[in-house]
Design a protein around this nucleic acid. Structure first.
Lengths: 207, 207
DNA sequence: GTCTATAGGCGGATAGAC
DNA sequence: GTCTATCCGCCTATAGAC
């Protein structure tokens, strides 16, 4: 399920190929972060040559910027309908649980998205990436705050929960929760028990 | 203030020199993370030769492990007295604010500690580092939970706040808050206004 | 105990063929 | 549009002098 058969190389135009490489880059950067991932790893993942990856995006940094932006945009898109609900019914605290659920669901659908985000934020001291990371973090914050009408503190709490989830996923806590009750406890209370399902999937996949 | 005059090289024994290199490594890894930092950068920071750094610790990974462990241990030490207070007076919710203040204070004292922690967690998919990151995260969680007698959810919320703070610091949000009111709002509500002071210091230092 | 010199390998990017 | 060949620089780690 994680390795879709590569699309046939013939009959693929540049735009499609570009999307293929972006998807591969997402997966590769999710694993190793910006510095820890080589353009060659991306190329192998995508089934194209390494110089072609560089040629397509100009540079590794540029490629990462695009992957990072796509990840955050996807997250924001996923929040959109829930934010609309909160906006219509601001008193309903339960809807924040739904936001958390949306985030957890995203994790289950595409774990790489959150990891790429995490790595983008962590690599913030690299000027090129840092500027973009701050821009996106600010955008996430203001978007949630303004669309929901919530207080800064509510929004902060929500985002903090997301950062913890990201961190746990980055250190592969779900995959190891089975052997560590305490880690499981920390992970499972992060956003309800959605993560338990994730752990189950991970164990199924690897063992 | 950030660049103490290097200790005189003569009259320094191996143990002292080791501490010097560890401190330098802390600073270097804090900036660039594990992959983004070269042993040469550490060596230059410490004022010793690059091969000597490797010789001292066996490998770059081993050096990072040691730096990472020191960072987490320092954080736990800082929490210790506050945890004792919470243990004695579990109903007093204000003491959690004190925990946050302790963390913020640590950030002001030694920003690198938190960054190293953050990078250790983010590099969790690298097996050597990941195992250690999970061990330490679990230890942080159980220590806070058991010593404070708090519920998993309380502890989770506290750690989540810490992760958000780490993330913001990693992307150098405090240094840029002056030019971005929204980012400042997110950062300043993270743990009270301790971060404002940090931003002030950062601006002073760089401009 | 600490250095200099250097091996050995990898990674990003370029040139140019097809 | 995509590949192969390849350059150059950088980075970790080793060898060996002092």
């Amino acid at each position: 399920m994680n390795s879709p058969a590569p699309l046939s190389k013939t009959r693929m135009n540049a735009a499609e190929r570009r999307q293929l490489v972006l998807a591969a880059a997402s997966k590769a950067f999710a694993r190793g972060g910006y510095y820890g991932t080589t353009t060659d790893a991306v190329a192998r993942e995508a089934g194209v040559s390494q110089p072609y990856v560089v040629r397509m995006f100009g540079s590794k940094a540029e490629l990462f910027r695009e992957v990072f932006a796509r990840a955050v945009e996807r997250v924001m898109t996923e929040f959109e309908p829930v934010l609309a609900k909160i906006s219509a019914d601001p008193e309903n605290e339960e809807l924040w649980g739904e936001m958390g659920a949306a985030y957890t669901q995203l994790l289950l659908d595409d774990r790489d998205l959150l990891l790429v985000m995490m790595h983008g934020f962590a690599a913030g001291s690299t000027p090129e990436i840092g500027a973009q990371a701050r821009t996106w973090m600010t955008r996430i914050y203001t978007e949630i705050r303004d669309r929901s009408g919530a207080t800064p503190d509510q929004v902060r709490t929500f985002i903090a929960g997301g950062m913890l989830l990201n961190t746990l996923v980055a250190m592969e806590a779900p995959q190891h929760a089975a052997n560590d009750a305490d880690l499981a406890e920390l992970a499972s209370c992060a956003f309800g028990d959605g993560l338990d399902a994730a752990a189950g999937e991970a164990v199924d996949a690897t063992g």
